[in-house]
C-alpha cells in the first residue's frame, strides 16, 4: 500500500473541515479526488504534504507517517498546490535547479535531470526564460516538473487543471498519462468529475469533509444506478398506478402529473428487481404504455451525491 489514510480529521475551531477520512491506495494507482469547493480536498492534500497537522488520525505514505516522520514523507511526495507562485527573476532551469538543491540533489545530478524534466513537460525551449513571464499553463507544467525533481513515488496534485484552457488541459492530461506509465502513484483533485473519470483508476468523492464514495468509475456510476428516476405513462387510472408503485420498497419520492398521465419516482432496486416490478405491474392490470429512465451522466452522479454541499 502506497498511501494509507487512517481516520484523518481536521478541525478549524469548531468547524470540521475533514471528518474521519479513511482511504488506501496501492502503488501505481491514479486516484481522482472529487468534491465541490470547500469539501476538504485541499485540506486533505495539505495534510498529506506535511503542511498541516491533522487534529486526529494519521496518514502513511510508503509506510512513513505524516505526523511522526514528516521529513521522510517529503522525500516520498511531489506536491503541487492549487494556488502557487514562482520567483521572479529566476529562469526555468534555475527554478528547477533551486528545488533540486532543496532536496539535496548533487549539482552534477541536477544538470542531467533538468533538461530531461523540461523535455517531459514540453518546456525545453523555455529553459532560459524567466519563469514569471511564462503562461499559466506553462507555469503549471513547470511546477509539475518541479514536483518530480527528486523522483517521488507519490504525486499530490491539487486541481492541476483549474484555470487552464482546453488545450493546456489536454497537454496536462497527456503528461499525467506518461507519469502513470512510469509507475507513479498519483492523487489528483478536481471539482469536476468527468475531467478525472477518463484518466483515473479510482475515484473518491468527498463532501463536507466526509468521503462518501470510493471505487472505480463504474462503481461510482453504479451508486447512481440505485437512485435513478423512472417515469411511467399510463392510459388511465393514474391513482391506481400510483398506489401500486408506492407499495414497492425500492420506490421513493413518487409524483403524479395528471395532465400527462405520468407517475415518476426514484428507484433504488437492482436490474432484476426492476424486471420483477414491471411483471407485477402488468399482472396487476396497470395500463402502462411507456416507461422511461431519466439517464444521468457522471456529472449528475456527482451532483446527486454532493447535493447540499453548496447549501451550507
Amino acid at each position: 500500500m502506497m498511501v494509507d489514510i487512517q481516520g484523518l480529521t481536521k478541525k478549524y475551531g469548531s468547524f470540521t473541515a475533514l471528518d474521519n477520512l479513511t482511504l488506501s491506495l496501492d502503488e501505481g494507482v491514479v486516484f481522482g479526488f472529487v468534491g465541490a469547493n470547500g469539501a476538504g480536498k485541499s485540506t486533505t492534500f495539505s495534510i498529506l504534504s506535511t503542511l498541516l497537522s491533522p487534529s486526529a488520525g494519521d496518514a502513511l505514505i510508503n509506510g512513513k507517517s505524516v505526523v511522526r516522520e514528516p521529513k521522510e514523507v517529503r522525500k516520498q511526495i511531489g506536491y503541487m498546490p492549487d494556488f502557487f507562485g514562482v520567483y521572479d527573476q529566476l529562469k526555468a532551469d534555475e527554478y528547477l535547479d533551486f528545488y533540486g538543491a532543496s532536496y539535496g540533489l548533487p549539482a552534477a545530478e541536477r544538470r542531467v535531470l533538468i533538461p530531461q524534466l523540461l523535455e517531459l513537460v514540453n518546456l525545453t525551449e523555455k529553459r532560459f526564460e524567466y519563469v514569471d513571464l511564462l503562461s499559466r499553463g506553462m507555469k503549471q507544467r513547470l511546477c509539475l516538473a518541479r514536483s518530480l525533481i527528486h523522483d517521488p513515488k507519490v504525486l499530490i496534485l491539487d486541481e492541476p487543471a483549474s484555470g487552464l484552457d482546453p488545450r493546456a488541459r489536454v497537454e496536462m492530461r497527456d503528461i499525467l498519462k506518461h507519469l502513470k506509465s512510469m509507475g507513479k502513484t498519483i492523487l489528483i483533485s478536481s471539482h469536476i468529475l468527468p475531467e478525472l473519470a477518463e484518466m483515473c483508476d479510482e475515484i473518491g468523492v468527498i463532501d463536507n469533509g466526509k468521503l462518501i464514495a470510493h471505487g472505480n468509475v463504474a462503481q461510482i456510476q453504479d451508486q447512481l444506478q440505485g437512485d435513478k428516476r423512472i417515469i411511467v405513462k399510463v392510459m388511465d387510472d393514474l391513482e391506481k398506478a400510483r398506489a401500486f408503485f408506492e407499495e414497492d420498497p425500492f420506490v421513493s419520492s413518487i409524483e403524479m402529473t395528471h395532465g400527462k398521465n405520468e407517475v415518476a419516482f426514484n428507484y433504488r432496486g437492482k436490474t432484476m428487481d426492476q424486471v420483477n416490478l414491471l411483471r407485477k405491474a402488468l399482472l396487476a392490470d396497470i395500463s402502462i404504455f411507456s416507461l422511461t429512465e431519466e439517464e444521468k451522466d457522471l456529472e449528475d452522479v456527482f451532483m446527486a451525491i454532493t447535493k447540499g454541499a453548496d447549501e451550507k
Partner: peptide, 14 residues
C-alpha cells in the same frame, strides 16, 4: 504572499 512558501516547505530542507 507570493505563494511560494508552501512549495518550499514541502522540500526536505529543515
Amino acid at each position: 504572499e507570493k505563494q511560494t512558501l508552501n512549495i518550499l516547505l514541502t522540500t526536505t530542507q529543515s
